[in-house]
Design a protein around this nucleic acid. Structure first.
Length: 577
RNA sequence: GCGCCUGUAGCUCAGUUGGAUAGAGCAUCCGCCUUCUAAGCGGAGGGCCAGGGGUUCGAAUCCCUUCAGGCGCGCCA
């Protein structure tokens, strides 16, 4: 049930009947203030202007043609021409009863499922995942879960970096270890250390560096021994990623891995296709595409280089090949790329070129979902105390440990196993939620204290709210599955909770539309807050039977909405904490 | 030099694509545990929305401009 859409459609129809253009927007929004009702339609002023009539008169005309009596008990014109809508309690009670019986909380499946490719996480396999991969992985996964919940056909694409010159160095180091009879799998248990060791050799040892360069060539020419060595490295590195995904509760699997190297054989085809269409231009020996879309005021164009002077390909080439694969093989309707904001220009170029070259259909939507950098409390990109980039696995271990300490302090009598589990859930949830709850596009400050706080818009607060509801339900000893009876919304706190509960779908659909999970976070936080207020003001278990049933249903709806919402964000809930 | 992004309360952040008196949380101050988890709830103070100009019934939001910061800009990804 999406109230906003319902009202929007009804009001728009009335507007058209009143003489507005077919596409005149009703602009229905949740009301800014309680005295303005539950929803307000802002579209009358703009339309009246176009029709050259008085906005209030037009609004009145719309009201005359509008029948909302089934859902609202008051609809009024206010200010310069707003229409304020006050929802009817009876209608909400009925809708909430239906919502409670629905496994998916009455959230509509999309009428026409789209095939949506979501490109996210995409770590470089040469190194271990670090804090910089957190945003793409966590936000991408939340959006993926949301799109799937709505019924779309989602294709996860983990575009891992498994190719490139740095692998020569790594393979050379593997080779050296093997000659020294060192166990390679052990050495690869910490990729970060391995990478640094290899880099040191590369920088300090000329013979090693030469061998590394040689290995890049053999690798690219398909030398079998070299490929086997490379494959061994990649497998271990992928296992590291999978371990991190598992602790993080991210839905990516091996099947979703579509590495850069998968496009190797296709890269020359991409260049050939561009050449065939006369898009290519040689510049200083490199194959480039100059598109007027990327010219500055002086007419200077920033080119896309698709082939280097020596014949080598670049990441632009790979991304173009991926684009073509996603259209020709996966046949996507929409492509979402959760990639660092710094690559914004690159993606604008790739998308524009991809269309120009006919690699993607005109109707296919390509959306770069940029995100900002994770900063430390000093305002600089987040680092560990020693000044290195924080490994994601270390970060997650620390989060669980910190959460465990907090929980153990509050629950000295609780058993160790449960404490550990709560610590795990709260710790991971805190890290993910801190990331998800901030506007994707801006940088954010990584701060243990605020993310693990029980106050404010945090995972612990939401999990606590959920466990409080769960506790009520447990203590009620009522067969909640068969709980029926009218839902009373007489108290203002009951009514506020009811309205909030019915707005879940609006938040969910927004995430699907714009890939911004922080809106769902804000919704869940408001829901939890509204419930807490209700909880303080309206006794549930101590109320007389009819009222108890009614309030228990509100509590149950809150529980399932919180649980479903957090699950869309990829966050587990706890029955006790 | 050119381009993109950002600038909102002391701090961390929202602001539904141009709507009504700009909102939360933290911190500060005041109040609430003999009743369902006080890891909670209620209340108060706190703003030249970086500055200036414009567009219109109406601007934090759109346009121009200045300032401050971040990031990109032909052979790394």
């Amino acid at each position: 049930m999406n109230i906003q859409t319902l009202l929007n459609n009804r009001i728009q129809q009335a507007m058209v009947a009143a003489g507005a253009a077919d596409d005149a927007p009703a602009l229905v929004r949740q009301s800014a203030k309680v005295q303005f009702g539950d929803y307000q339609a802002n579209g009358m002023m703009g339309v009246a202007k176009k029709l050259k009539t008085n906005p209030r008169e037009f609004a009145q005309k719309v009201l005359d043609l509008l029948d909302l009596s089934d859902v609202a008990d008051k609809v009024e014109i206010a200010g310069p021409g707003f229409i304020n809508i006050f929802l009817k309690n009876d209608w909400m009670s009925g809708a909430l009863a239906s919502l409670r019986k629905s496994a998916r909380l009455d959230i509509a499946q999309v009428e026409k499922a789209q095939t949506i490719v979501v490109d996210y996480s995409s770590p470089n396999l040469a190194k271990e995942m670090h804090v910089g991969h957190l945003r793409s992985t966590v936000i991408g996964d939340a959006v993926v879960r949301t799109l799937e919940f709505l019924g779309h056909n989602v294709v996860r694409q983990n575009h891992v970096g498994d190719w490139g010159t740095q692998f020569g160095m790594l393979l050379a180091y593997m080779e050296r270890l093997r000659q020294e009879n060192t166990e390679i799998s052990m050495a690869l248990s910490d990729l970060e250390t391995f990478y640094r060791a290899a880099k040191t050799c590369f920088d300090d040892d000329e013979a090693f560096a030469a061998r590394a360069r040689e290995l890049v060539v053999s690798l690219q020419s398909g030398d079998e021994e070299c490929l086997a060595l490379w494959q061994e490295f990649i497998n271990i590195s992928l296992e590291h990623c999978e371990a991190t995904y598992k602790t993080l509760g991210v839905s990516l699997t091996r099947e979703n891995v579509m590495p850069e190297s998968a496009y190797n054989d296709d890269l020359h085809n991409v260049v050939a296709a561009l050449k065939e269409q006369d898009l290519l231009q040689e510049s200083n020996g490199a194959q480039c595409v100059f598109m007027e879309e990327f010219a500055n005021k002086e007419g200077e164009i920033t080119p896309v280089i698709v082939q280097k002077t020596g014949g080598g390909f670049l990441y632009a080439t790979t991304d173009l090949a991926a684009l073509r694969y996603r259209q020709d093989v996966l046949n996507f309707d929409r492509g979402l790329y959760f990639v660092d904001a710094r690559q914004s220009l690159h993606f604008q170029q790739i998308y524009t070129l991809g269309r120009k070259a006919g690699f993607v259909k005109p109707e296919t939507s390509l959306e770069h979902m940029p995100f900002g950098t994770v900063m430390g409390t000093d305002g600089k990109p987040f680092k560990t105390r020693s000044g290195t980039v924080a490994k994601l696995s270390d970060l997650l271990a620390e989060a669980q440990d910190r959460a465990y300490q907090l929980v153990a302090e509050k629950n000295p009598e609780m058993e160790e196993d449960e404490l550990r589990n709560i610590g795990r859930v709260v710790g991971i949830a805190s890290v993910k939620y801190a990331d998800l709850s901030k506007n994707r596009t801006s940088d954010y400050v990584f701060n243990w204290d605020t993310m693990l706080s029980f106050e404010g818009n945090t995972a612990p607060y939401l999990l606590y709210a959920y466990s409080r509801v769960a506790s009520i339900v447990r203590r009620s000893e009522i067969d909640v599955a068969n709980l029926t009876g009218d839902i009373s919304l007489a108290e203002s706190q009951e009514r506020a909770l009811a309205v909030k509960l019915m707005q879940f779908e609006e938040a969910v659909q927004q995430v699907a539309n714009d890939g911004m999970p922080h809106n769902l976070c804000a919704y869940l936080y408001e829901l939890a807050g509204t419930f807490m207020t209700f909880y303080e003001a309206c006794p549930i278990l101590n109320a007389e039977d009819e009222l108890k049933n009614s309030r228990l249903q509100l509590a149950l709806n809150t529980a399932s909405t919180l649980k479903q919402g957090l699950s869309l964000l990829g966050i587990e809930t706890l029955e006790r904490m």
